[in-house]
């Protein structure tokens, strides 16, 4: 269960963005969770709810978006989704695939709350 460490990394980004935009709090977080990111969406949500207490994101909800594994075959150029973890080209059988998405944890967007008088 390494979701707590991952959430600590997420909060580094939240603090950075809040500072950059002179925001007082974060009210929503959208996170793209790759099938092969090694993290479980439900555990991330639980870890987020534990971590957020007393922080700038106390009122925020974490929304996770599942991202399937997408690859491109370097031999024939086909692009397709991999399920069942078989990394061979479905079209030509080649074993040389480039992974396009589905292995990482990306903060897609966040919602910030700023003071009225702050110019945009």
């Amino acid at each position: 269960m390494h979701e707590m460490s991952l959430i600590a990394g997420l909060f580094e980004i939240l603090e950075e963005k809040a500072r950059e935009h002179k925001a007082r709090s974060v009210t929503a977080v959208r996170l793209r969770v790759g099938t092969l990111s090694g993290a479980v969406p439900e555990l991330l949500e639980t870890a987020f709810d534990m971590y957020k207490k007393g922080t700038l994101a106390e009122k925020a909800a974490l929304v996770t978006i599942a991202v399937p594994v997408k690859v491109r075959c370097r031999a024939c150029g086909s692009e397709f989704e991999v399920d069942d973890y078989v990394f061979h080209c479905q079209f030509c059988g080649a074993a040389d695939l480039e992974i396009l998405s589905g292995t990482d944890l990306l903060v897609e967007s966040i919602e910030l709350e700023t003071e009225d008088e702050t110019p945009a």
């Binding site: 990482d104 944890l105 903060v107 897609e108 919602e111």
Partner: peptide, 10 residues
């Protein structure tokens, strides 16, 4: 409130 695009790896 404002939405901010981030696209950063945690």
């Amino acid at each position: 409130r404002k939405d901010v695009e981030v696209y950063e790896d945690i």
